[in-house]
Design a protein around this nucleic acid. Structure first.
Length: 485
RNA sequence: GGCCCCGUCGUCUAGCCCGGUCAGGACGCUGGCCUCUCAAGCCAGAGGUCGCGGGUUCAAAUCCCGCCGGGGCCA
């Protein structure tokens, strides 16, 4: 029985793209579903562009999503000898040949073909070199690349798990380079050698690789490898339906992580980009996703990355969180504002655990909690437009002044007691409770919307409430009423 | 330009293989309920010539042909 082995093979030339994360997720889901292995290979053969910080970002991103790999990470930069051997084999079999054409010369010929209106392709002139000429040029020490000797006729076809049969005429494929002049393998070549060496059974990757597949298939055949199965995932698109890229906004997984997207929300959301559960229930745990995922059900058309839906889903998972767990997640965000230490002191933690439930049902990202909770940590520096308008109404200053006095005299300061005080004041004045509640909220938070007033007052405590009310009164009496209207 | 892939509400999609439920669900949007506001939650609603044209058929989103549009890769 052949056990499934899949892999994700990112290049550390940039931070982990959400598209790559989605590809990783589908590979991982498939492996877990089939009881196979999920592997990680770092394609770091591009010396200049590969950076350790990108590698770290990729590894951390995958770990954050919970996409664990089953064997040690494979680094292409450590397998140069293997590529060299396999290239040598192809050379000896006559399935690859050295090409001495200088890059400038190639470019010149390309321009020429372009000018003539023909598809630019390598003219294979070095393929026709006699053994003696090759020998001579080698001896001269002329730099060369290794090219694959593509069959001149026929066609290559393969069965894509998602798209069905795909075929390419060999004459459309040219003698692509497999080893660069510096001795480094090209993407297609290293990829095939590694996938074979790693025993990869299913190559699940982005649709943008479809045109690489016929070349790779020829390589498999030439090297005598058994080819894997292929599944080309639909691309992740921006709002304009072009491939999702930087100009569309955030594309790095780490950016979403920083704005406070939860990993379970990201996993759930990403899983729904190109695949859909049979029962049409979209909220799925990791275990459910594994159990229900089926590669054959993946759609073939591209999917726009809809941030609004991600935010909704994230909000859903946030509301699902136990308060103390969510509070833990908020610590770094609040610490960044200087509101508490990281880790928080006991007192800070007790306060945080009271604040958290009051922002929980309103936040869609962890970052949003900062704005929502600000008034719990800082006295509002100003009142927003609506709050100012509400405060400036007739009699508000006197009303708030009276409320502050009554609150000050309170023994305790829990939600019920505060509520009783507010409602009683309203009753005595013959006005609706809302007539007291709204300006009070404005004075305490600087806004007209937010958590239940009595709850937030209980959390703020007597001192802060009384102080803020009185400062609002002072502000009103100093002539703000006329200034505001 | 060449090759390849794709095309169902604004978006993610179910249905297409095995023609025949008012083309279903979700996000978003609108309204209502709840209510001290916002949010959440619950309920309701609007939104789709199934890319277009033709053919097959009693019947086509679904099968066949052509076209158009979008995208990807190579340049």
């Amino acid at each position: 029985m052949s056990k499934v082995r899949v892999r994700i093979a990112p290049s550390p030339t940039g931070s982990l793209h959400v598209g790559t994360a989605r590809t990783a997720l589908f590979n991982w889901l498939f492996a877990r579903k089939e009881g196979g292995k999920f592997l990680l290979r770092i394609e770091d053969t591009d010396r200049e562009r590969s950076k350790p910080e990108f590698e770290r970002d990729i590894i951390e991103g995958l770990q954050w999503l919970g996409l664990d790999w089953d064997e040690p990470i494979v680094y292409q930069s450590q397998r140069l000898e293997l590529y060299r051997q396999e290239a040598q084999r192809l050379l000896e079999m006559g399935k690859a040949y050295p090409c001495f054409c200088p890059p400038e010369e190639l470019e010149r010929r390309r321009q020429e073909m372009l000018a003539k209106g023909i598809t630019p392709k390598y003219d294979r002139r070095c393929r026709r070199l006699s053994p003696e000429e090759r020998e001579r040029l080698m001896k001269e020490g002329r730099p060369f690349v290794l090219r694959f000797a593509m069959p001149l006729e026929g066609e290559i076809r393969f069965r894509d798990i998602i798209r069905g049969e795909i075929r390419f005429a060999n004459r459309e494929l040219d003698d692509f380079i497999i080893v660069k002049s510096d001795g480094f393998p090209t993407y297609n070549f290293a990829c095939v050698v590694d996938d074979h060496a790693m025993g990869i059974t299913h190559v699940i990757r982005g649709e943008d690789h479809i045109s690489n597949t016929p070349r790779q298939l020829h390589l498999y055949a030439a090297l005598g490898y058994e080819p894997p199965q292929f599944a080309h995932l639909p691309l992740l698109l921006g709002p304009d339906r072009s491939k999702l890229s930087k100009r569309h906004g955030a594309v790095s997984l780490s950016e979403y992580r920083r704005m406070g997207i939860l990993p379970e929300a990201m996993v759930n959301f990403l899983a729904l980009l190109g695949w859909y559960p049979r029962d049409q229930r979209e909220i799925k745990s990791r275990e459910e996703l594994i159990a229900e995922f089926d590669l054959r059900e993946v759609k073939a058309s591209g999917a726009i990355f809809d941030l609004e839906k991600l935010l909704w889903m994230n909000g859903h998972y946030i509301r699902q969180k136990p308060v103390d767990e969510l509070a833990h997640f908020l610590v770094p965000y609040f610490a960044e504002q200087g509101w508490l230490h990281n880790p928080p002191t006991d007192e800070e933690w007790r306060y945080l655990i009271q604040v958290t439930p009051l922002v929980q049902e309103r936040m869609r990202t962890l970052q949003e909690a900062v704005e929502l909770a600000e008034f719990f940590y800082r006295e509002p520096e100003s009142y927003d437009e609506k709050a100012r308008a509400r405060l400036s109404k007739e009699g508000v200053a006197e009303l708030l002044w009276e409320l502050s006095n009554r609150l000050e005299r309170l023994e305790g300061f829990d939600g019920e007691e505060v509520e009783r005080t507010v409602r009683q004041l309203a009753a005595e004045r013959g006005i609706k409770a809302a007539e007291v509640i709204h300006p009070t909220r404005a004075a305490l938070t600087g806004r007209m919307e937010g958590p239940s007033l009595f709850h937030l007052m209980a959390v703020l405590g007597k001192e802060r409430c009384v102080g803020r009310l009185r400062r609002a009164v002072a502000w009103l009496r100093s002539g703000a009423e006329s200034a505001a209207t």
